[in-house]
Amino acid sequence: MPFKTLLTVTGAHQGDGDLKHAAGLCEEIHAHLSVFVLVIAAPPSGGEYAAVVSPAWLAEREAEMEMLEKRTSAVSRLLSESAVSADVSSDYPDAAWADEVIGRRARYADLTVVGPDLLASHMLKEKVIEGGLFSSGKPILLVPKSTRATLKPKRVLVAWDANLEASRAVRESLGILAGADEVRVVMVDPIEDERHHGAEPGADVAAYLARHGVKVTVDRLPSSNRSIADVLRQHAIDTGAELMVMGAYGHSRLRERIFGGVTKSMIEGASLPVLMAR
């Protein structure tokens, strides 16, 4: 399915770099751009006695709402000068449900673009990624600093572990994969049994992709005492991949936060644009 609407999220203190990245992607594939301007509300003063509303907290909220209004106006002006079809919306949620608010907005886009400015913003980054992955049913595209994102890549790496999340990522990116000159399905330490990768790891997913016209190659790689994320990143460099496609959070978010995982590692240290789905 082609991407017809891209969503990007921006905050009050961010620059316009992410907007320009997203607008460029929309121009490339003739898509509509939705911009969601978000300021996460300051928590009430007084902790559990928050019913006691302080004048300072009220003043802080008023200032934040004013910043939200100014940023929304600035974004609207910027987009009015662009040739891209676009719309702007805004919200001022509390931190506790900001990811759900973002996820609901993302349900009306085909892809949420998380650019370098957003990746540098700790709280807003977390809320956008979690909302996009867990509350929208749609994929996200991470665009790290100093990388060039394209939705018409020539070389794509697919991180395949035969899990549901990886299957969804492949399905969401079929249009991109079919248009690429080279797609490498990469498995790290694949397990050869029917509950994992099958008798011939990679054969089933390669056949599936080939039926969709994808020019696919299967790479089975040993980890050799390296993390899976490091193996994938290095192979992406070695093969000149312009995009990585992978499933996200095969384990729970809590487990990933405590013990780490491929998703967490990729979010924190992606070396190329990564399309994730769950």
Rank of each mutant, 00 (worst) to 15 (best):
T112F: 00
P273M: 04
E28S: 08
S227R: 11
E69G: 05
A96Q: 11
E242R: 06
V114A: 03
L177M: 13
S271W: 03
R226G: 08
H251G: 00
A51Q: 12
M187V: 03
Q234V: 08
W160M: 10
A120F: 03
R107W: 01
G131P: 04
S252C: 07
L151C: 05
E69N: 10
E62H: 10
L164W: 08
S34H: 12
L19S: 02
L7M: 11
S85D: 15
H32N: 09
A229N: 02
I237F: 09
P139W: 02
E27R: 15
V114K: 01
E48V: 12
R104A: 13
T112Q: 06
R107H: 06
L221K: 09
R257C: 04
R195F: 11
M67Q: 15
R107V: 10
Y49L: 14
A12S: 14
L119D: 05
A51R: 05
Q14H: 12
A86D: 04
S146N: 14
D219H: 10
E100I: 13
A206K: 10
A270S: 13
A159Y: 01
P93M: 06
L38N: 07
D110Q: 02
V88M: 04
R257M: 12
A169E: 10
L25P: 06
A109L: 03
A95D: 12
P153L: 12
G269F: 04
A203W: 01
A83D: 13
E60K: 12
G260E: 06
S252M: 06
E256Q: 08
A42C: 09
A162Y: 02
H13V: 05
G261N: 05
R148K: 13
V185I: 14
D18G: 13
H21A: 06
R155V: 15
A236N: 01
V128C: 05
L142N: 07
H251W: 00
R104P: 00
S227A: 10
V113I: 15
W97K: 03
T5Q: 09
M266L: 14
V262Y: 01
V216K: 01
A86H: 08
S34P: 00
I191N: 01
P43Y: 08
L78V: 09
E172F: 13
L118K: 04
A229C: 07
S271G: 15
A31S: 14
G132S: 11
E268I: 04
